[in-house]
Design a protein around this nucleic acid. Structure first.
Length: 412
RNA sequence: GGCCCCGUCGUCUAGCGGUUAGGAUCCAUGGUUUUCAUCCAUGUUACAGGAGUUCAAUUCUCCUCGGGGUCACCA
């Protein structure tokens, strides 16, 4: 069974670049009708953060990204060791005793000479007796490609097993992609240079199945997914925005399922994009409008379709669920009316309390205006303050429609 | 510095030899609205620069400039 994979290291929050990669992998997996697996690159024990793996999986779930299994690299160590050993046996890898200081010096020299650094193969042909007698810590390096072979310019004899005998990320990744029968890899452009190294590893293992690669340029000024979620952006809006970047969608607002219908990885722009909050806000607002009333009400802390309809009126003024919540909350909160209006509002509140129930706003308005002897403009202004606890807002007649049943409880 | 990717409004993009260079978003103005907002209308803003090929270049080629990535026992 061929499949696609999304790799994530549990060393920090998930950023929108990662999410975009996950989304596109998911879309392509659906289009190709292949499975998507999630791989947790947790070999770097120093930097792993407890719980980040689960956080990543939760986010994928929240965004509707389905996967068939989760693989932890830390549970595959025996494969990496066995394969490294095999390469050693076949003389396709060698032990390297070069000290860290010495390598760093070499690297620095290369940098100062404005040359790309490559390992000089100092340990490649050590006599066996020197190897066996050497008690110094060593790494395992794979033998570089032949001079005539492909990418011999860019691929040196790089480390595949570190001194503490854990695989390097490049090596582990190459092995995993082979073992999992990965057909296509969609990843960030920053891994582009690793590709030839990973292919080299597989070549040395006589794995000649070709894996298709697609590298995406990064989004600049990126933010964490968690942060966007906390600010009140809808998952469907975030994915809508991320899928739009670098492409020309047939319509502005769409769902993940719709994107699967038309998305074409080949049309995606290769130039780096800038994260644009304005655009996300606009998309979020439009998705907010598509929510049904009960869902909407949940986002503002209720579970009531009528409150949902009320909230819908306020979407015009906000971009996120957080802002929406901030608009709705005062309506049900303690009134705090400025002195300038106190006297009039107290009287109006009194009048409303004693008024009969009116289905229609106009009838209600006429009744109260008559009782209080207020002009229309003054009435509207005062009633708005009284009912919504704000001086500005949506059409008060519309607000009345959804609040008339709660009105006498709200206005105390 | 070597290598790789890229260059159209501020941003995301359409364009694939002849266009008044289009759309979206943002911004500005006007209209609707008892208010803010919405909505509608209108408007400002772009082919990085220079050579070449061609009757004709945003489009093809080269150079320059600019942006991004990479050059670890990191991910």
């Amino acid at each position: 069974m061929l499949m696609l994979r999304f790799a994530s290291s549990p060393t920090g929050d998930m950023y929108i670049n990662d999410l975009r990669i996950a989304l596109l992998n998911y879309i392509v997996s659906k289009q190709k009708n292949e499975d998507l697996i999630v791989r947790i690159d947790d070999m770097d024990k120093e930097n792993n953060i407890e719980g980040k793996d689960q956080e990543t999986l939760d986010i994928l779930g929240l965004f509707g990204i389905e996967y068939t299994q989760v693989i932890y690299q830390s549970q595959n160590i025996r494969f990496y060791s066995a394969i490294a050993l095999q390469l050693l046996h076949e003389k396709k890898a060698f032990s390297c005793f070069c000290s860290d200081e010495w390598l760093q010096k070499k690297r620095k020299e290369a940098q100062e000479a404005n040359k790309p650094y490559q390992y000089d193969d100092a340990c490649r042909n050590l006599p066996p007796e020197l190897v066996i007698d050497n008690t110094a810590p060593f790494t395992v390096r794979i033998v570089r490609p032949d001079k005539l072979g492909f990418s011999s310019d860019t691929v040196d004899s790089f480390v595949i097993m570190t001194q503490d005998k854990t695989p390097t990320p490049n090596f582990a990744c190459a092995v995993d992609d082979m073992l999992n029968d990965i057909s296509m890899i969609i990843r960030n452009e920053k891994y582009l240079n690793n590709t030839s190294k990973q292919i080299h590893v597989r070549n040395q293992l006589r794995y000649d199945k070709e894996i298709e690669y697609a590298h995406l340029s990064s989004i600049e000024n990126e933010v964490s997914v968690k942060q966007l979620l906390e600010e009140g952006y809808l998952p469907e809006a975030i994915s809508n925005y991320l899928i739009s970047i670098g492409t020309n969608p047939p319509k502005e607002i769409f769902t993940l399922d719709e994107a699967i219908q038309w998305f074409n990885l080949e049309n995606i722009s290769k130039s780096p994009a800038h994260f644009n909050m304005d655009m996300l806000q606009d998309i979020n607002k439009k998705h907010l409008k598509n929510l049904d009333a009960t869902e909407l009400s949940r986002y503002v802390g209720f579970a009531d379709a009528e409150i949902g309809e009320l909230a819908r009126l306020y979407i015009e003024e906000v971009a996120t669920t957080k802002e929406l919540k901030e608009k709705i909350a005062p309506i049900f909160a303690q009134r705090n009316i400025s002195d300038e209006f106190t006297e009039q509002t107290v009287f109006m509140a009194q009048t409303i309390k004693n008024a009969p129930y009116f289905e229609e706003y106009d009838e209600f308005k006429n009744y109260i205006m008559k009782e209080t002897e207020l002009k229309e403009n003054d009435f509207s202004k005062l009633f708005r303050i009284l009912l919504t606890n704000a001086e500005q807002g949506p059409d008060i007649a519309e607000v009345y429609k959804y609040l008339k049943n709660y009105m006498k409880e709200i206005i105390k």
